[in-house]
Amino acid sequence: MQPDQTSIAGFAQDDLDPPAGGENRQQFITFTLGAEEYGIDIMVVREIKGWTDTTMIPNAPVHVRGVINLRGVIVPIFDLRARFGVGLTVPTSMHVVIIVAAGTRTVGLLVDTVSDIISIDPKAIRPVPEMGLPTEDQFLEGLVAIENRMVTLVSLAGLFGKSADATKRHFKGDLATSKAA
């Protein structure tokens, strides 16, 4: 399934100046986890909603916060902080869930806040340096500097891909190639 572009078109138009610098620029939605700012490709974002209580999934890894009812569809919610291995989010009504299309699946990412939409030239994306962080590099697509801020771009394929050890047992398989159902 292709990401639904129409559902975010309004969002993008309201909040953005027309993307300057031509058609090569890529748009990212940025969000925060603590002091860190991350970006995710706007094309995969379906909607953004406030945190609501989830229903737990038995024996799931700790970053799987359970499932919610998104207009009749059962959608799992992943705690990105826990997924990055930097703690566990204690969600409040202030927290935000970014609903994204990960391959054929629709999943929610629990983050602290959504801050901005940025438009960047792919050439400006720099590789992630080896930093010895507890996180794995596979789901970090690159780094980009915006007005003195550093934004880490997150790759969905890396987050839910085969290499994601922490999720291997329960969240197996490559989402991008998982069955269309």
Partner: peptide
Amino acid sequence: VKSLEANYDPVDGISGATILGNGRVAL
């Protein structure tokens, strides 16, 4: 009956999901 597997993996001990009157998911 709703599919849990449309967006997640099969869960041992769970055959499916449903949505209750309060809008919450129950397995």
